[in-house]
Design a protein around this nucleic acid. Structure first.
Length: 500
RNA sequence: GGUCGGAUGGCCGAGUGGCUAGGCAGAGCUCUGCAAAAGCUCGUACAGCGGUUCGAAUCCGCUUCCGACCUCCA
C-alpha cells in the first residue's frame, strides 16, 4: 500500500438518501458490498449508459486501492419487463426478438456480449458477480410472496402489485426522491390502463403473461414474468445481504426504480437495504440528456469510428474515458467535438507524463520547492478522490507537476532535483492512480519488437542524415512516417516516436 | 402543472466564505537546421438584482434562462 501518509483523510461520499456528504464507513469492514443497476440487454448500450459504468468502475477501483474487499455486483436485466399492465406495449426484449426473428434469449445473449465487449474497451473491471434476472426468477417469486405476506402486496387476476399507499403509511416511501407523496398521489396526470391497480402509484411485482409474450415462467399466480424493480431487490439481497453498503445507478432511476427497490426490500426484509446511495448524472448533447427516445444517443462504436453525423472524426476509448473522468460523476457532462478533442490531447499528455516519469532518476541535488510541489501533488490526488471520488480534482493535481516532470525528462536529461525517496513515491503514486484507479492505459500499440527494431534503425539513419545536415533525407523520413501515423519527437537526448 | 437540480473566462470543466483548480484553444518567448514535442509567461470568469458577513463564485431571498424526473431510460 503506497504512501500511507497521503491518504489519512477519510473518504467522503455524497449520499442521495441523506442529501449530504458523509464519511464512508462500511457496515462490515474491510468488506464493501457494491451494487450497480446494469443494462437491459435488448440493444447496444449508448454512451450515456457507459458513463455510469465507467464512473462506478473508478469507484470500485478506488475502494479496492484503499484496501477494501469489494464485492461488486452488477445485474443484467434479461427478462423483458414492462412496469405495469398499462398500455399495450410489449416488453422490449420480446419486441426485439420479433424484429430480429430470433429467440428472446438470443437477443439477450447478443447484447450481453456486446455490452461486455464495450465495457472491456473502456477498460472497466468486470463485476465480481453479474447476475441475470432470468437466472433468479425463483428468488423474485419468493420475495413477491414475502411482500404479499407482509401486507404490502396484492394479487389481481394473475398480477401482483405493490400497495404504495399502504406501505407509505408505515414507512417513508419518498425518502430517496424527496418528492411530496400527497402531490404524487393527487397528480391528475392520466396514465391510462390503470384499472387493475388499486392506487395510481402501485407498481407490478409480477405480471400475467399475455399470449404473445415470449418470456414467461410459472408462478403461484399463473404464467407470467417479474416486474422490473423486484429483480434488483432480490439479487442484491441474495449476494450482498439484507443490508449492504453502496447502491449505485443513474440518477434517472431515483424516483421510480430505486424508490421502489427500497420499498420492496423494506417490505420483505424489514430493514433499510442500503447505507449509501450514489447516483451518476446524465451525459448531455447540446444540453439535452442523451437518450434513445430523444434520438440523440451515440453508440460507442460510432464514437470510436467517427461515423456519427455529429462527429468530425473518431475518438479512442481511452480518450472518452479520460473525457468522462474530467468531470465529476454527479455533474452533467456535455458532449461536443471540441470537448473530445481537448480530452484527447489531455489524455495523451497525461500518458506521456507517466512514461517520462518512469525513467527519471535523482540528480543528487534537492530543490525544496520541487519537493514541496511533488508532495502537494500526491496529497492533491488523494484529497480529490477522497472528496466523493472527484477525479477532476485528482487530474488537476497531476497536471500541477506535469511541467516539472517533463522538465526533468527533457531539459534535465532524466534527472530530478528531489530526493530518491520522494521521487520513488511520486513514480509509484502517479502510476497507481493513472493505471489502477483512473483505469487509463496506453493505446498507442508499441507495435511489437519488429516495429521497435525498425524504428530504431530509421531513427538512427535520420540522426546520421541530420549530422551530415542532409535535411532532405531527414525531413523525408519524418514526414513520411507522419503520414502513416508515426510522430517523431526530437529532444536533446535523442528522438522518440509515438504511434497515433 | 408539481418536484428536484443547474447557470463559472473562446470551449470543456473543478471549486468544502478569505490563499481566486486543471485541460483545450489563443498570444509571446526559449529550445530547434526547420517543424513537432517540451518548458516559461499572459486571461482576475463566476446569469441578474438584493441581503447576511470584515470578506461570497461559495450562504439566504427574488428574477431570468436551462435541464432532469413525474411514462421506459444509466
Amino acid at each position: 500500500m503506497p504512501n500511507e501518509l497521503f491518504h489519512q483523510n477519510e473518504l467522503q461520499v455524497y449520499n442521495t438518501l441523506t442529501r449530504s456528504k458523509e464519511v464512508f464507513r462500511p457496515l462490515h469492514p474491510p468488506f464493501v458490498g457494491l451494487y450497480v443497476c446494469g443494462p437491459t440487454v435488448y440493444s447496444e448500450p449508448h454512451l450515456g449508459n457507459c458513463r455510469t459504468f465507467v464512473s462506478f468502475d473508478v469507484i470500485n477501483r478506488y475502494l479496492r486501492h484503499l484496501g477494501y474487499k469489494v464485492r461488486y455486483v452488477r445485474n443484467i436485466t434479461d427478462a423483458g419487463h414492462i412496469e405495469s399492465t398499462a398500455g399495450d406495449a410489449g416488453d422490449r426484449i420480446s419486441e426485439q426478438a420479433k424484429i430480429e426473428s430470433v429467440e428472446p434469449m438470443e437477443i439477450v445473449q447478443k447484447y450481453s456480449n456486446a455490452f461486455r465487449q464495450i465495457m472491456a474497451r473502456f477498460n472497466t473491471l468486470p463485476p465480481d458477480i453479474e447476475p441475470t434476472a432470468t437466472g433468479h426468477i425463483i428468488e423474485q417469486i419468493e420475495m413477491t410472496k414475502a411482500i404479499i405476506e407482509s401486507g404490502y402486496g396484492y394479487e389481481v387476476d394473475g398480477n401482483v402489485f405493490f400497495d404504495v399507499e399502504r406501505f407509505s403509511k408505515d414507512h417513508p416511501y419518498t425518502q430517496l426522491s424527496g418528492r411530496n407523496l400527497d402531490e404524487m398521489l393527487n397528480n391528475t396526470r392520466d396514465l391510462g390502463g390503470q384499472q387493475l391497480k388499486r392506487g395510481r402509484l402501485d407498481f407490478a411485482l409480477w405480471i400475467k403473461a399475455k399470449p404473445e409474450h415470449l418470456q414467461h415462467w410459472p408462478s403461484p399466480w399463473g404464467e407470467g414474468y417479474p416486474g422490473w424493480h423486484i429483480e434488483c431487490s432480490a439479487m442484491s439481497t441474495k449476494y450482498l445481504g439484507k443490508e449492504f453498503d453502496i447502491h449505485g445507478g443513474g440518477l434517472d432511476l431515483i424516483p421510480t426504480h430505486h424508490t421502489n427497490e427500497v420499498a420492496q426490500s423494506i417490505a420483505c426484509n424489514h430493514t433499510q437495504p442500503v447505507k449509501y446511495w450514489l447516483h451518476t448524472n446524465m451525459l448531455t448533447v447540446n444540453g439535452q440528456k442523451m437518450s434513445k427516445s430523444l434520438g440523440n444517443s451515440f453508440l460507442p462504436e460510432e464514437l470510436f469510428s467517427g461515423t456519427h453525423p455529429l462527429l468530425d472524426r473518431g475518438y479512442s476509448p481511452m480518450t472518452v474515458r479520460y473525457f468522462m473522468l474530467q468531470a465529476h460523476y454527479s455533474s452533467t457532462l456535455d458532449f461536443t467535438n471540441e470537448a473530445l478533442q481537448a480530452a484527447e490531447k489531455g489524455y495523451k499528455k497525461m500518458m506521456s507524463v507517466v512514461r517520462h516519469l518512469q525513467s527519471v532518476v535523482p540528480s543528487g541535488t534537492v530543490d525544496a520547492e520541487q519537493v514541496r510541489a511533488v508532495n502537494a501533488c500526491m496529497v492533491g490526488m488523494y484529497n480529490g478522490m477522497n472528496n466523493d471520488f472527484n477525479t477532476a480534482m485528482a487530474f488537476a493535481a497531476i497536471n500541477e507537476v506535469a511541467g516539472l516532470i517533463n522538465t526533468w525528462a527533457n531539459a534535465g536529461k532524466g534527472k530530478a532535483d528531489i530526493d530518491a525517496d520522494t521521487l520513488m513515491r511520486l513514480q509509484e503514486t502517479i502510476t497507481v492512480f493513472v493505471y489502477d484507479i483512473f483505469g487509463l492505459k496506453e493505446e498507442t500499440a508499441a507495435g511489437g519488437e519488429v516495429l521497435g527494431g525498425v524504428m530504431n534503425l530509421v531513427i538512427d539513419i535520420r540522426k546520421e542524415a541530420r549530422e551530415k545536415r542532409d535535411f532532405a533525407i531527414s525531413d523525408k523520413i519524418r514526414d513520411t512516417l507522419q503520414t502513416v501515423g508515426i510522430t517523431l519527437k526530437d529532444s536533446k537526448d535523442g528522438t522518440t516516436w509515438e504511434q497515433s
